[in-house]
C-alpha cells in the first residue's frame, strides 16, 4: 500500500516552512570543545583542591613513586580512550553502538577504574591517609566539561536507548575525569578508592542516564 500523495505534499510543505542549514563539518568544533574541556579540567584540578585547603596540581601526588604514577596514568588513559571509542558513534552511522556495548561501558568503567587502582595498593606506601571525599568532589566538579564535549560529539540523536547512551557518556566522562584526578591523588588504598574514585563514577553514570533521557530522546516536531 503506497502512502497517499497528500502526505508527500504535507511533508514537503512542512519542511519548506522549517529550513535547516546544510551539513557542516563538526570535527573542528568537536576538537575545539575537547581542548576546551581539557583546559577546564586542568583548571579545576589546579584550583578546586584549594577549596579544601589542599595543594592543587600534580605536586599533590609527589609522594607516589614516579614509575607507579606513570603506569597508573597510562592504564587510566587507555581505559578512557577505549571507552570513548566504544561509546561514541565513530562509525558511519547516525545511531549509537548496540545497547549491550553501551551497558558494558557504563558498568565496566567504574569497576575497571577501581580495580586498576586497587591493583597498585601495596606496590608503594601511601604517603598519607584520606577518606576520599575530596577526590569525590573534585571528580564531580571536573566531569561536566568532558560530558559536554562528548554529548556534542555524539550528535545528540538516539531514538533507541537515550538513557543507556547517556549513561555510557557519563561513564566515559568519568573515565577522563579519573585521568585528571589520578594526576592529583597518590592514594590506592581500598576504602579511599571506593569512595573517592569509584563512587563518583557511579554517580556520573547515573546522572548521565538521567541527562541522556532528556537530551537524546526524540521530540515530536
Amino acid at each position: 500500500m503506497m502512502p497517499p500523495e497528500s502526505l508527500k505534499l504535507r511533508v514537503l510543505e512542512t519542511i519548506r516552512q522549517r529550513p535547516v542549514p546544510r551539513r557542516t563539518d563538526r570535527l573542528p568544533t568537536t576538537i575545539g570543545l575537547a581542548v576546551l574541556a581539557a583546559v577546564a579540567m586542568s583548571a579545576v584540578l589546579q584550583w578546586a583542591p584549594r577549596l579544601f585547603g589542599e595543594v592543587g596540581g600534580v605536586a599533590h601526588a609527589a609522594g607516589r613513586p614516579a614509575a607507579c604514577g606513570a603506569w597508573i596514568l597510562a592504564g587510566t588513559v587507555a581505559l578512557a580512550l577505549s571507552s570513548t571509542w566504544l561509546a561514541l558513534p565513530f562509525r558511519r552511522s547516525m545511531l549509537s553502538p548496540p545497547r549491550g556495548v553501551l551497558l558494558g561501558v557504563a558498568i565496566g568503567v567504574p569497576l575497571l577504574v577501581g580495580a586498576w587502582l586497587v591493583l597498585w595498593h601495596g606496590a608503594y606506601a601511601d604517603p598519607f591517609t584520606r577518606s576520599g571525599w575530596r577526590c569525590f568532589a573534585i571528580t564531580i566538579l571536573t566531569a561536566p566539561w568532558p560530558f559536554a564535549a562528548l554529548a556534542y560529539a555524539s550528535r545528540r540523536a538516539e531514538p533507541r536507548h537515550p538513557g543507556t547512551a547517556g549513561a555510557a557518556l557519563g561513564a566515559v566522562a568519568g573515565a577522563w575525569t579519573a585521568v585528571m584526578v589520578e594526576l592529583w591523588c597518590p592514594l590506592a588504598v581500598h576504602d579511599h578508592v571506593l569512595i573517592g574514585h569509584v563512587l563518583p563514577l557511579v554517580v556520573l553514570t547515573l546522572a548521565g542516564a538521567a541527562l541522556g533521557v532528556r537530551m537524546f530522546r526524540l521530540r515530536r516536531l
Partner: peptide
C-alpha cells in the same frame, strides 16, 4: 511517516558523511 521525515530533515546538518 511524517514525523520521521521531519526528524530526518531536522538532523540534516548532523547527518554523517
Amino acid at each position: 511517516v511524517q514525523q520521521t521525515f521531519l526528524q530526518i530533515h531536522a538532523a540534516r546538518h548532523r547527518f554523517v558523511r
